[in-house]
Design a protein around this nucleic acid. Structure first.
Lengths: 345, 345
DNA sequence: CTGAAAGCGCTTACAG
DNA sequence: CTGAAAGCGCTTACAG
């Protein structure tokens, strides 16, 4: 329908077009664009009108070239893809970060580095100073990418403590240890004594800390920590099912399960049912995350909530601080126990 | 620990540094960088070495400014956030697109436009020609954003047919109609005659087409289409539960349910069980999507698979074509029925 | 408060 | 095959 004679790439108005339209120099246009001091109200008005009339929007590349700031932040995923994308936490985090970045007029660049080749390319790109900073999700302790980025002095904020880089990489995380402890203390308060746990991977801060909270609670109440009641999962649903079978095998008497993620709890639930245990009648179950899943399970899941929206917000705020040269910092946000049917009060 | 005397922003090597190092003009460096013709093998060698020695990486902003191409693609979400991020399809699509883009050395910019203000900002940004193209996810028919983007001649490829813009906006989608039809024909072949359906939203192509496939199959087999057996959902789990209750209410005799998404099927399953219907004994259930959920449900879910990885791949390929000035196109990829326990063969 | 000018780091005709 | 030069669209001291 549209019979454009002009070539496909229309000429966008530039700062000069606006200046001509407004009858001022283009330096003045730039000043009002950037809200700098020393511009007469009259000039501001004229320029604003000219901008509206021409439909001008700044060319971010020209701006970046001139300022040396890219105006963009990389959201970097290094985890094997399938795991991360299955995790509902990830979506919530991504959404929150997108929001916070948008509020600051920063652009979100999504990068996924799974294969060795991608990792190299990503490292080069980020070290090249082509983004203002990096948001790191679920970093692995021994990842060589980390040392490269740190060495290149790229501003970084990680989601979760980065084991080995605590001093150099800022991080924001939930208080996983207290969260785990509160979950298990709830179970103890409800009269459970044979409490098992399905942990997260032990090379992640979350996996380690939630388990630590579990042992904290037991020991604080004089309950021995039995290795037979500890099985490791990988956060995923399937691993929760496997772990539950193993736990029942190792200790058929168990009267509670604390799973370090809702997904693993979701995997454990049907296994318990099939094994003839009613939840919460015979076995109480508590998860972690308060993901969308938790409330829809049958029975609905008692779980530990960490405010992911708060975490993403803080990650972005902290990153802008680091970009502005402030020293690295570590932020911990509290968790809350959400009581539902799988372990009622 | 690191006592950097130099200011935080280290000077990155530029093309001139490489040229000096290699002993050629920087125009030559640019040529080998871009793999252009007319460069002596000797020059190529020298420059490559100099690049390696200096650790040079091109400044994308300078390049963009010079070429007028941004090297980036926007992945634009306009759906209310919660819906999209809950949908496992979304993650798979995002991952696939990220991969395909990375293969082409294009940068993925994630934009979420939910509030009216964000929508305006986004429209301005995209219309400003600051990305090379836009990947549109789950577009709404009447969205003003669409007309703006089309008018600004921004290259677009949508996931799913865009009702009203079929001629102007390229799209890639699953053959939802055939998929729906194959699901229902399977149920018919298994002896079901009172087949109900939970549809997707009727202002989306997927919602409309999957329902169309349902009626296609019934009519082809001389089975009347009963309004009492059609209830609308919003793709989400909760809406599936509500819809299932309504269906049982309107037709207690039903012997099969075709849900237009796995999530809605997942919501329907426990409702059926609570109503005393065994699956697949009393009622067969088929979903759509073959999301990660399907195989883990109890019983595992018979569903229609659409190859999302293929779709994302084609979206990116098509978008690069459109960017290069080729005319809009619509691609449909076939679906396959995956038979599991909720409706075995 | 405002304008002229240099410069950000590239690409790309234009001469050679 | 290669170099000198203009230009992409901004920002930012520097003079006024």
């Amino acid at each position: 329908m549209s019979q454009s004679i002009v070539p496909n790439v229309r000429k966008r108005p530039t700062i000069r077009d606006v200046a001509r339209e407004a009858g001022v120099s283009y330096a003045t246009v730039s000043r009002v664009l950037n809200g700098r001091e020393w511009v007469s109200p009259e000039a501001v008005r004229v320029v604003r009108e000219a901008i509206a009339r021409t439909g001008y929007t700044a060319n971010p590349h020209a701006r970046s070239l001139a300022t040396g700031k890219s105006g963009s932040i990389a959201f970097l995923l290094t985890e094997p893809q399938h795991l991360l994308f299955e995790d509902p936490n990830f979506s919530v985090l991504l959404r929150g970060v997108a929001q916070a970045l948008s509020d600051r007029e920063l652009t979100l660049i999504l990068m996924i580095a799974s294969t060795p080749e991608e990792r190299n390319r990503t490292t080069a790109y980020l070290s090249g100073g082509h983004v203002d900073g990096v948001l790191l999700v679920s970093p692995h302790s021994g990842d060589p990418l980390l040392s490269h980025l740190v060495q290149a002095e790229v501003p970084i904020v990680a989601c979760g403590r980065v084991l080995g880089y605590e001093q150099q990489i800022s991080s924001v995380m939930a208080d996983d240890r207290s969260g785990g402890r509160s979950a298990v203390e709830h179970l103890i308060a409800m009269g459970c004594t044979k409490i098992a746990t399905i942990t997260g991977p032990q090379d992640t801060a979350g996996g380690v800390d939630r388990l630590q909270g579990y042992t904290d609670a037991l020991l604080a109440h004089g309950i021995p920590v039995e290795p037979a009641r500890i099985v490791h999962g990988d956060w995923g649903r399937a691993s929760g099912a496997t772990a539950a079978r193993q736990l029942l095998d190792q200790d058929p008497e168990l009267d509670a399960v604390f799973a370090a993620s809702d997904a693993m709890a979701a995997g454990a639930l049907p296994v318990l049912r099939e094994a003839g245990r009613s939840v919460p009648g015979d076995v109480r179950v508590v998860g972690f995350d308060d993901s969308g899943l938790a409330a829809t399970l049958d029975p609905s899941l008692t779980t530990v909530r960490h405010p992911l929206d708060r975490i993403s917000e803080e990650m972005v705020r902290l990153l802008t601080d680091v970009i502005n040269g402030r020293t690295p910092l570590s932020i911990t946000v509290p968790t809350t126990l959400v009581i539902r049917d799988s372990s009622p009060a």
